[in-house]
Design a protein around this nucleic acid. Structure first.
Lengths: 344, 344
DNA sequence: CTGAAAGCGCTTACAG
DNA sequence: CTGAAAGCGCTTACAG
């Protein structure tokens, strides 16, 4: 288990140059002649030499790592594939830049984890996987002037670097599509209205109705929780009302199962009696029959884009815009389109 | 943004001792007098001094970090809360030991990520979040004699350090409970029979039937995939058969929705016509009506236990047993017990 | 119980 | 274009 077999000195000796030169070759320093580089590279390769991170970091006074804190209390953030996908996007992009990703469980709170990461100078920057209203983590990071990027949207400060789905556009596009199929009365179900992303999807929905001259009926907007139970109860109420909707947009994936159950129970046909669409597809929505029209959100891209942006910050590049939007995809299927047979 | 304000030299000067002494106080070295410790600690606290990790690691020739690789292709591993919970367990326990957790996306393969972690000596050990049959990762780690712990069970080598749920017991206990309610014909649905944990749950089921003198009917065992579609199709077939089961155990959470849909469609009463139970509860199973009897698996404990075990290995402690089992919990509810009203 | 000194394996002005 | 030397901030035999 001799981990670090060779040091830069060994390589220098083998290659007949000085350690300084080896170091520069490692860095691809343009001042070194191609000839020397070739020789040294061969030796490096031959012996499988890898510079020791700790030594390099100490000499450079950098950590070459960024930190991530695991949210610990919020089921909705990881119950879909968000957490896993975003993490993957972050890690693989940062690996390209040669950065490590340090992950810390927010113990006892996320703020503690963040303070620890900063004060022990273990990371050069932080990626936040979510934010809440009046977020203490963001406040702390700002007050420390510590480089960070938020995945999500920050309502309080408009200079916070963030990467997000364009939730306004997602809400708008889906509404637009459903209207184009001839439906007139689109209900909204599921997702907490204290979540920023839900608020923004709602915004897009309203904007679209307005632009079509359709009045907004608050009685068919049911934002509460992203759970099956909430979806079932809300949808049941809506369907039992005097003027039931002819379409429903589910605002987040987990509510879908409940909404669908309410519809099945009423023995309604999808999409004839009621069109169904969902923002944020997931395991739950994948096997719907008829296939479910969704807005699919690319969480992996969210992660890699956040990584890009943070690296930019660390290199002193001021971002073009504080918030970068990642493209979403409208996936049109039988639940809003009268095409394939209903094989329930 | 002056991250590292003070060095050990500064603290030594302020405290009127040598850097060596400060270092020893940091380590709580027993040879240092309590008096000196007190003084130095106060200074450390006063200036908020934290030793620079890179310097410490270089001097100690250790990384104080362990690595984790994100599985990238297997939906079933993270679609439940497994990934998130296990990660949390690992991180918070390792933080207690003062270890960092480095996370790497398996890019392009997990094996690449592992090789990278080892060859750049960025971590002292690795925790594997899963294994497959004839696992190349395990083979590589073994051949390098690199310390690692597997979350799961390794069938090939019995000296591999692992932490797992006792899936045999889980299958056994649940079967036992259902038999105790008077049911006789228990079907098994969902979960891939190439997964080790499914194989072991099956083993427990068979063992229990055997011990009760009940013959095993392979025709009511449907192991294939952990998906809603597979659950629905299998359950439908089972219910349409000449001798339908009077109970069903769903072998993994994602198949539950489909199984339930098949039962609802047949308008069967739960548990009177058919008792339903599921191994591994999740978001999908939480809102069932009547409430679902489940074996709940503590993924967080799996993570923290794996952390304990790896730290043990790194400290040269040979583990008492290669495989440690984490306790599961049988949660008995209306889906197998004739108690609460059916509010479906 | 404590300190002076060497060393961990790199990087980087500085000099040539 | 390259090398010698100092330094990054710790730890740890060694000596007392």
């Amino acid at each position: 288990m001799e981990k670090q077999k060779y040091t830069i000195k060994d390589i220098a000796r083998f290659a007949g140059v000085s350690p300084s030169t080896v170091s520069r070759v490692l860095d691809d320093n343009p001042k070194i002649s191609e000839e020397t580089k070739e020789t040294v590279r061969e030796v490096i390769k031959k012996y499988g030499f890898k510079p020791l991170a700790a030594a390099r970091n100490l000499a450079r006074k950098t950590t070459n790592a960024i930190g991530i804190v695991i949210p610990h209390d919020d089921v909705s953030i990881y119950s879909s594939s968000f957490f896993h996908e975003a993490l993957k996007g972050i890690c693989s992009r940062l690996a390209d830049y040669g950065y490590d990703v340090l992950i810390s469980s927010g113990n006892p709170t996320e703020l503690d984890a963040i303070s620890r990461l900063i004060s022990t100078s273990k990371v050069d920057g932080i990626i936040l996987l979510r934010s809440v209203k009046d977020d203490p983590n963001i406040r702390h990071l700002r007050s420390e002037a510590f480089p960070f990027v938020l995945i999500g949207t920050c309502l309080e400060f408009d200079d916070v670097c963030c990467v997000d789905n364009n939730n306004v556009a997602a809400g708008y596009d889906l509404t637009e599509h459903i209207l184009s199929t001839g439906k007139k009365r689109i209900a909204l179900v599921g997702g907490s209205d204290s979540s920023v992303f839900i608020i923004r999807r709602l915004e897009g929905y309203k904007k679209c109705l307005k632009s079509h001259g359709i009045p907004i009926d608050e009685s068919i907007i049911r934002l509460g929780q992203n759970t099956e139970a909430y979806g079932y109860d809300s949808m049941t109420e809506l369907l039992n009302a005097a003027a039931p909707p002819d379409a429903v947009i589910i605002m987040d994936d987990l509510a879908y199962i409940g909404v669908n159950r309410a519809i099945v129970r009423k023995q309604l046909r999808i999409p004839r009696d009621i069109a169904v669409a969902c923002i944020n597809e997931s395991g739950d929505t994948k096997y719907a029959k008829p296939a479910l029209t969704t807005v699919s959100l690319d969480f992996n891209a969210l992660g890699s884009c956040a990584a890009d942006k943070l690296i930019g910050l660390l290199r002193g590049k001021q971002p073009d815009e504080a918030c970068t939007y990642v493209k979403h995809q409208l996936a049109l299927h039988g639940s809003t389109l009268e095409v394939c047979g209903n094989s329930n």
